[in-house]
C-alpha cells in the first residue's frame, strides 16, 4: 500500500499525518514537495495536511491549490486514489475544485482551537467505515477559516447524496448546516476541518481518529 503526504511551504501538520499514515499502513508515506509535478506511481492514499500553506496569502489554500503538485493530486483522485484533506488541506481541496463550496472566516471572527464533538453522518464511506452512523466522536479543531459555505442547492445535494460525512454537534465556526467534513461525488475524496491525526494514541487523550485511518487501510486492502 503506497501513501504520500503533500508538503507546502507553511504546512505544519504534515509530519503528524505521516505518523498516522505509517501507523495504519505499516509503511512510511512519501513526502512530496509542492514543486514536484509528478507523484509516485500507483499511490493508494494521498494526504493534504493542515497548516498555513503560503501564509494563507490571497485566501486560505488558494496558492497551494494552483501549485504543480495539486494537478497531479487531482489526476490521482480521478483514477480513484483516496485523498484526505485536513484543515488547510480541506481548504486546498475546495480551492482546487475537488470538493464543492468554500471555507470562510469563522463566523465569530475568532481562531477556534479546542476539542469538538462530531457526529458521524455517513458511516458507509471509505473514510468512516469503522464508525457507526450517528456515533458521537471528539476531534480537535484549530482553524480561523473553517466556516463551510455553499449555496443552498449544493448543500441539499450534499445532504441528499450522503456526502456530509461529519457534522459538528454544535455550532463551532458558523458552518452551513454544521458541516465539518464532506465527500466528493465518487466518495474517494474527503475534506474535513477537524484533525483525526491528532487523536490516534492513548497519550492524545482519545484515539477516536485512529479508526479513520484503519478504515481507509481496510478499504484499500479489500479493493486490492
Amino acid at each position: 500500500m503506497k501513501s504520500a503526504v503533500i508538503v507546502f511551504p507553511g504546512s505544519n501538520c504534515d509530519r503528524d499525518l505521516a505518523v498516522a499514515f505509517e501507523a495504519a499502513t505499516g509503511a512510511k508515506p512519501a513526502m512530496i514537495w509542492h514543486r514536484d509535478t509528478e507523484l509516485p506511481d500507483d499511490l493508494d492514499l494521498i494526504g493534504v495536511p493542515g497548516g498555513f500553506s503560503y501564509g494563507d496569502y490571497l485566501r486560505s489554500g488558494a496558492m497551494a491549490a494552483r501549485s504543480p503538485v495539486m494537478q497531479a493530486v487531482a489526476k490521482a483522485a480521478d483514477r480513484g486514489a483516496y485523498v484526505l484533506g485536513i484543515c488547510n488541506g480541506f481548504q486546498v481541496l475546495t480551492e482546487t475544485g475537488l470538493l464543492p463550496g468554500a471555507l470562510l472566516r469563522n463566523a465569530g471572527g475568532h481562531f477556534v482551537c479546542r476539542d469538538v464533538a462530531l457526529t458521524v453522518e455517513n458511516a458507509q464511506s471509505a473514510f468512516t467505515s469503522r464508525y457507526d452512523a450517528g456515533e458521537s466522536i471528539s476531534f480537535p479543531v484549530a482553524h480561523h477559516d473553517g466556516n463551510y459555505f455553499a449555496d443552498a442547492e449544493t448543500l441539499d445535494r450534499l445532504e441528499g447524496e450522503g456526502r456530509v460525512a461529519l457534522r459538528y454537534a454544535e455550532s463551532v465556526n458558523g458552518s452551513a448546516r454544521n458541516i465539518a467534513g464532506i465527500l466528493n461525488e465518487a466518495g474517494n475524496v474527503l475534506g474535513m476541518m477537524p484533525h483525526p491525526e491528532r487523536v490516534i494514541e492513548a497519550a492524545h487523550g482519545t484515539t477516536d481518529g485512529r479508526r479513520l485511518f484503519e478504515g481507509l487501510v481496510e478499504g484499500l486492502m479489500a479493493r486490492a
Binding site: 470562510l104 472566516r105 469563522n106 465569530g108 471572527g109
Partner: peptide, 9 residues
C-alpha cells in the same frame, strides 16, 4: 449573503 466577519468587526 456571504458572511463578512471582518466587515462586522
Amino acid at each position: 449573503g456571504v458572511l463578512d466577519p471582518q466587515g462586522k468587526a
